[in-house]
């Protein structure tokens, strides 16, 4: 038996098998644009009531301003992204680990109209305050504004906006989130556990980032929340 296998046996703690697998088909651009065209018109007032009934504020905070590093802020988030997120949790297209179980269970109790209404409500809230870093980390700043042509990495800002405020279609606001959350998502894309991105767009990027670059980007876009 080789050492690597022994190490695995010792530390992987295979306490239980049979973990659920993410088997939902991935997004093609065509399927996503078709879905977006059919997205119901969102009623923000109804969305506010639904968000209350769903106890969304327990993790995402009052009006979607996350109270801790542990969940993303939804206030001012891209409406299409919010709608898509609920579809993806319901279908388990976004199922990276058991952290996502509560969102899956919540999502399956709502309808697509409900998703659109809640998305409209949260998207209407002012974005969280984003303080620009005075002396940004050079590595992160380069990746954010210029990308890296040697690795075919487009700059983050070309999709997520100059200040990470979110872009067209489904590209989300990232700058209002905690560094802790951003890092976790980049790691999930990098490991392939999160796979609800359209045409593997984020996975292509994250797979090429080093751990140091992920940390630097998380600090660069993070809101300073610990």
């Amino acid at each position: 038996m080789n050492k690597r296998l022994l190490l695995l046996l010792a530390f992987a703690s295979p306490l239980w098998a049979g973990e659920p697998q993410n088997t939902a088909p991935e997004w093609t651009a065509e399927a996503w644009h078709e879905t977006l065209r059919n997205m119901p018109y969102g009623n923000a007032a109804r969305g506010a009531q639904l968000a209350k009934e769903g106890y969304c504020y327990t993790c995402h905070g009052d009006r979607g301003y996350a109270p801790s590093r542990n969940a993303p802020s939804l206030a001012g988030q891209n409406q299409a992204y919010l709608y898509k997120t609920m579809l993806d949790f319901a279908s388990k297209r976004w199922w990276a680990d058991h952290k996502d179980d509560v969102m899956h269970n919540a999502a399956i109790t709502f309808t697509k109209q409900d998703y659109a209404d809640m998305a409209a409500y949260y998207a209407q809230q002012p974005k969280p305050f984003f303080k620009r870093v005075e002396k940004p980390n050079h590595v992160a700043d380069q990746l954010a504004r210029r990308g890296d042509h040697t690795r075919l990495l487009t700059p983050c800002s070309s999709c997520h906006g100059v200040r990470g405020e979110g872009g067209v279609n489904e590209t989300p606001m990232i700058s209002g989130q905690s560094a802790f959350y951003i890092k976790r998502q980049l790691e999930m894309y990098k490991s392939g556990k999160r796979r609800n991105d359209v045409e593997e767009g984020m996975r292509f990027v994250a797979e090429q980032l080093t751990d140091e670059e992920i940390e630097a980007l998380a600090q660069y876009y993070g809101n300073g929340q610990k």
Partner: peptide, 23 residues
């Protein structure tokens, strides 16, 4: 525990923890 629905408390900011618990 960082991979379950209930949030990790390890390393949580002291003031954030207090604010949440008091709320």
């Amino acid at each position: 525990v960082f991979d379950e629905s209930m949030p990790p408390l390890a390393g949580m900011d002291r003031d954030t923890f207090i604010k949440l618990m008091k709320d």
